[in-house]
Amino acid sequence: MVKKIREIARKLLEEGKVDVVLGYEKGTEPLSERPFVARTVEEVERLTYSPFAIQNLATYLPRFNNNKVAILARGCTTRAINVLISEGQIERDKIYVIGIPCNGVIKTRELRESIGEEIEDVSIQNGEIVIKTTTEEKKVKFEDWLNISCKYCEYPNPLFYDVLVGEEVKPRGGGYPDVEDYEKLDEDKRWEIFEAEMSKCVRCYACRQSCPMCYCEHCFVDSTEPRWVEPGFDKTDLESWHLIRVLHMAGRCVDCGTCELVCPEGVKLLFLTRKVARDLKRDFDYVSGLNPEKPPFFGEFRYDDKGDFIL
């Protein structure tokens, strides 16, 4: 797979079809597969791919609007591209999509921190992640460390591509059991968990910056007039930030999970975004990023939209 990716990338760069290739390279941290921008034929040799590549590369696309770009895209990446096109941020003709069917990505930071020892080598064999530390060899189940969105992913294959690397995979599906479990808890318990999660936030905004949908030049959280979110670490401000962020994601979030995976404090965010995605699908039959022609969720309405909550 990696060989094929490099081959395609090299050809594209050599023939001048694209200026840059957005892909992944091996990082210096264990379990890290970081974004990498290949600009020359030599740099193509650094490209790799594995389930540790957590970052959704569509985040970088608006930066390269003046270039022709090739991008490694999973299902969620192509959905993000669709949303960005529908919102007029990028143009499809300038993007060459190297499609990758995806089996899900791993919660790399959480796994790394759970090991608690120096990790020397990592490999994936027969559905297991084999982690060699300085003292022992640990085996953990691939499924156990899957990003929650990937676990129930319905669109693992790229929705569109110029070239596909590998065989298409079967969607896992499975709905939103995590959201349903949370809903079953009683009100005060839910609030307690929510507060505990949000108060871990250090406001580094890695969630915002890593999100392919957060391209605003001026974010509401930085606004001083009106002051949607006040400075400081009061719980209500941290909660406001995350709640409003999730509202802005409604109908746009493609459920790639990057925001939660990159959070240095491990704040759980997907139970919020997935809740909204579930509602939109269940009550409005709306799934984000399937069609670049379709207006955004909040940019359209139906006369028979749910309205029974209104007096």
């Binding site: 509202l247 919020l272 809740k275 509602d279 939109l280």
Partner: peptide
């Protein structure tokens, strides 16, 4: 609709 449901969902 989205806002009300979200706020009630978090508790």
């Amino acid at each position: 609709y989205v806002l009300k449901d979200l706020l009630e969902y978090v508790g």
